[in-house]
Design a protein around this nucleic acid. Structure first.
Lengths: 252, 252
DNA sequence: GTAGAACTTGACGTAGCGTCAAGGTCAAGC
DNA sequence: GCTTGACCTTGACGCTACGTCAAGTTCTAC
């Protein structure tokens, strides 16, 4: 007593294409092949198919299912391994959801409000995209809360400090000193200390990877004209990057 | 001022292969192509690339990213649409995790305990695989708790009721009446009422899809010899299925 | 005998690149 | 001017689990 490929597909709730696929993989050969080439399946094949479909619904890949059916791997072991992967996926998804949510929030609510704060030279909100691109919407949100939480005079002081740093960098770059000179390295030290004052960045977060952050920043200064403008243009930014690189490799 | 494909790949933290891929897709054409065919990228391209990589990290597909960059779709709108899909994925994963967990539990703990209950003709625990395959480990666990929670006399009564149903079905099948006859339909009604007594099944769960469940059961009776044996073999099972199908379509 | 349903194998498409393969180009050193 | 090695190019296959034609053969029913 056996069934045609369509019949068994309906019985098991799948398609004939799937059955041919499983045959191609050697996962479920037909119990009999007619002289006309037709595939026929018996009850044993149906039971096997149902196990396959069960495991597949649980998310196992076909090779893993093949191992289980071949007795190579215990069903429970295979499922536990799979469970680990599922949990990783859950974590990844949860992080991604949070990230997307924060990004939407920043896009919808934050942008106009922040735009009002954009004054002259330095305004960190100008760089939302860059910050999020490199260190996540988290970092931006933290930095933004910090910025908006300041009093006006505090903000002004911070801006002046930032602008002074930029001016000093530009001057040093123009003076022709080397990026590894004592003067440039002193500026680099000041720069890193300045960064440490910004919450949400690795430099402003205990345990953050300051070294990688600083190295990344250098590249960003060079790559983006809006940053570069703060340091005397592309040449200035290149100088800053080189000096930061030397500093980071020596001290971080 | 521009960069070679390797240089910009390093700056943005990706690979040259990816950049060629984006070029092929028209997502990020190089800003300049040398006479030798080499691709060169400027700062505008770098900024565009960084937006692409940001959106990609958030999980958007490349076509969706292309829409956003082309101004076809607002960034926030695209991300909100994406968020919906992410949440669906989360739900799906959560269900799958729960399902896998229950299956492992049943595999590890339950099996031997249940085996002791297997007596003569009908024992639902005999059908763990089938039950789980079709209605999930949930259903089996609920059914198993119910079964094990009964007193011995209750279990015996249930078995007798089940056996009587099986005998009556077999007799009806052998008598030659039609599946849509009043006699067969009365049996079908009894059968569905009997099913309603089993918690964990759709029939035993308020709001469950009884109709689909009953139709699926019919096929299973025919497909599986262990079930079929309860109803007078394959012919009996076929009769049961046909009668149940008629009943379900008319009354459920 | 013939139409229509069911079956066969073969092959492309899917998402986003990784990874050879085969060959041209460039900068540096001899 | 030649070699070496690094970097560049355009194909094209591979991966997951099939869906979806396409073209041809076989079965079933009238």
């Amino acid at each position: 007593m056996d069934w045609s490929i369509q019949e068994i597909a309906k019985l098991a709730g799948t398609t004939s294409r799937t059955l041919r696929h499983y045959d191609d993989l050697g996962l479920l050969p037909p119990s009999r092949i007619g002289g006309n080439g037709y595939r026929y399946y018996d009850r044993a094949a149906l039971v096997r198919l149902q196990r396959i479909l069960l495991l597949r619904e649980l998310g196992l890949g076909l090779p893993a299912i093949a191992d289980v059916l071949a007795g190579q791997t215990g069903e429970a072991r295979a499922l536990e391994g799979h469970l680990g992967w599922l949990r990783h996926e859950q974590d990844r998804l949860a992080r991604q959801v949070a990230s997307v949510e924060r990004t939407i929030e920043a896009l919808e609510g934050g942008e106009e409000i922040m735009a009002k704060d954009m004054l002259d030279g330095f305004d960190h909100t100008q760089y939302r995209e860059e910050v999020e691109e490199r260190w996540g919407a988290d970092a931006f949100a933290a930095g933004d809360r910090w910025w908006r939480g300041m009093r006006d005079d505090e903000r002004a002081a911070w801006k002046e400090r930032s602008a002074a740093l930029g001016r000093d960098w530009a001057a040093a770059a123009e003076s022709g000193v080397a990026p590894d000179s004592a003067e440039a390295q002193a500026l680099a030290k000041r720069h890193v200390e300045w960064l440490t004052g910004i919450p949400g960045t690795p430099a402003g977060t205990p345990g953050g990877d300051v070294r990688a952050y600083v190295l990344g920043l250098g590249d960003m200064y060079v790559a983006d004209p809006r940053f570069a403008a703060n340091y005397g243009g592309e040449q200035g930014a290149t100088f800053v990057r080189d000096a930061l690189t030397v500093f980071a490799e020596a001290n971080l």
